[in-house]
């Protein structure tokens, strides 16, 4: 019995080892992009770069309005000015729209990405995969964005929208009610009902970073609490009528109402598992919740 066990263990093992070695031959290394640097608008920036090179090289030089571009896979691109586009003619194409102002009609569904070189309006009830806009982008109500949306100048969003994985702009990002998001980036991001005010008095001034579990701060509408540092918590963070100079970070849930975070001089972040914004929130910088766990209530 023992002899059989030893034979099996020490001799027959050679075969699976030999096979596994042969199967594992060849090169395979995890690659690190040594030039990578974090950018909250990464998707759209990378998308624009790849598309732009191809447009200049193929479309503009060859005068062709349909080109092939190597993105993560090979994609077809339709380039030019459009009138009353329904996106039905070339459903599997990425559209690059060169109109000075373009309007995507109510209820339109677009399977692929859209890149507008100037201003763009997306009317109510549209279903769109991803949007890059180099001008001002206005989105109506109940629009669904599957992947990402980015506008260089500013981005205005109606109510009841689902904003995909990332929603970003270099300028102002204004959000209506009942929007669902994962990541937002804007300078600033403003929710409905925000009124610009200059506060002369504060109910409390906290000089340092707050590190507590949980954090609950509530000031008065005319006399908010002022936090000069960041706020970190392993538990929930709930802020009402508060101004925070720094980052707000929770490993659980964040609720903000009538709150200002960051300043024009300092980009900051609001990061939590679930984030809920009430009215009157203004954030300079970046917001991140777990997938679709961010909500403007």
């Amino acid at each position: 019995m023992i002899e059989v066990v030893f034979f099996l263990v020490f001799f027959l093992f050679i075969f699976p080892f030999a096979i596994s070695y042969v199967l594992a031959s060849g090169k395979e290394r995890l690659n690190i992009d040594l030039n990578y640097t974090r950018n909250p608008r990464y998707f759209s920036v990378s998308f624009r770069e790849k598309l732009f090179k191809a447009i200049i090289k193929d479309s503009l030089l060859k005068g062709d309005s349909r080109i092939e571009v190597q993105m993560s896979k090979k994609e077809l691109v339709k380039y030019g000015k459009f009138n009353d586009l329904t996106f039905n003619l070339y459903p599997n194409h990425i559209y690059v729209i060169t109109n000075r102002a373009f309007r995507i009609k109510k209820g339109t569904a677009v399977k692929k990405e859209i890149y507008a070189l100037y201003d763009l309006v997306i009317e109510d009830d549209c279903f769109i995969r991803a949007v890059a806009c180099d001008g001002v982008c206005k989105i109506g109500n109940d629009v669904i964005i599957v992947r990402w949306i980015d506008a260089i100048k500013s981005l205005y969003i109606g109510s009841g929208c689902s904003l995909g994985i990332a929603c970003s702009t270099e300028g102002i990002l204004k959000l209506g009610k009942n929007n669902i998001f994962t990541r937002l980036y804007g300078h600033p991001i403003i929710t409905y009902g925000f009124n610009e005010k200059e506060y002369k008095e504060f109910s409390t001034i906290i000089e340092k970073t707050i590190r507590e579990n949980p954090v609950q701060l509530e000031g008065f509408e005319d006399k908010p609490v002022y936090v000069k540092g960041d706020i970190f918590s392993d538990d929930d963070i709930r802020l009402k009528n508060v101004i925070v100079e720094g980052t707000v970070f929770s490993f659980k849930n964040i609720y903000l109402e009538n709150v200002i975070v960051g300043s024009p001089e300092r980009r900051v972040s609001v990061i939590g598992e679930r984030i809920t914004f009430g009215r009157g929130v203004k954030i300079y910088g970046y917001i991140q919740a777990n997938t679709k766990c961010g909500k403007v209530s």
């Binding site: 980052t247 970070f249 300092r266 972040s269 990061i271």
Partner: peptide, 12 residues
Amino acid sequence: QKIFYGDIIDDQ
């Protein structure tokens, strides 16, 4: 998966 601090963007 737990949230990363690495997601923070802060100028300070």
